[in-house]
Amino acid sequence: MTAATDGRSTATDAGRRIEEAAREIAGAGASAPDPARDPVNQAMINNWVEAIGDANPVYTDPAAAAASVHGELVAPPAMTQVWTMRGLHGARPDDDPLRRMTELLDEAGYTSVVATNSTQTYHRYLRPGEHVAASAVLEGVVGPKRTALGDGWFVTTRTTWYVGDEAVAEMTFRILKFRPPEPQDPGNSDDGTRTADAAPVLRPVVTRDNAFFWEGLRDGELRIQRWGGTLRHPPGPMPPDGDLEAEPDYVVAAGTGTVYSFLVHHHPPVPGKRLPFVLALVELDEGVRVLGELHDVDPDEVHIGLAVAASFDRIDDDLTLPAWTVRS
């Protein structure tokens, strides 16, 4: 494997603007402590333990709680965040860093959100009657990253809950704000070539040595480099005998061959592909191997030796990929 660098190398101006804004928001520090709507209370604890199915008596049974290490009723630590949730009509305060970052990413097109990590640390248990307030700070914004859900930014915030001046709990919370991929709708055009979702497809690196191959595909030709009597694929700048004076040309393959090996890709998602899909390494009748997707086939029916014919996956005006269909 070669380097899997992160998405930063493709960062655009928009990306830099997001990073700058994130630095500013982080630099503004923690938001003012925002008090919970209600104090810690037994009614909400009861609702919570009913829903979660938690039978721990220290939350609901005064006698058992009195006899426990707590000496009195306490709230479930996992409810800490619940006390300061916004509720049905609540809005985050203006200085809330997650609100500001969310608005910014929404504007940049990263409109979907999913929570990815939550690390909560509880310094002590809360008791009914105590009133908590939460204060949050932006810890970091990383992106754009390509994820299974789409390109997006990871936003990490750190929240501290206070009772008075006492910090009682902390949480590091990470969400992914992502741009949902466009729905895929590969169809077939009149000339039998296939159109696919253009935007996310990975593109080949075209050089003087291989331009004829990619140009040929655009014209519906599967071209194989020829040095005198020898065919070679993938193509390169030198003949097998090392003759610096030699000039290559190409032959147009008949487009028939057999499956030399194959795989069925199930995971992870690949840009522009519907899962699962079959990739076949095909030995052409001319004697060289070429790789491409094998279309319109039940993966269970594919086997080494299966006869196939070349087809052409037209991605857009610039790019057409070699592909295969089963020869009947």
Binding site: W48, I52, G53, D54, A55, N56, P57, V58, A64, S68, V69, P76, P77, A78, M79, Q81, V114, A115, T116, N117, S118, T119, Q120, T121, Y122, Y125
Partner: peptide, 25 residues
């Protein structure tokens, strides 16, 4: 977060003190 806490305290008992829950979805 709640289910993970419940799962652990169901096993550890009512006197176990939960100090942190770190979860990844």
């Amino acid at each position: 977060t709640g289910l993970v806490q419940r799962f652990v305290t169901d096993w550890a008992g009512p006197d176990a003190l939960v100090r942190s829950v770190d979860l990844r979805l």
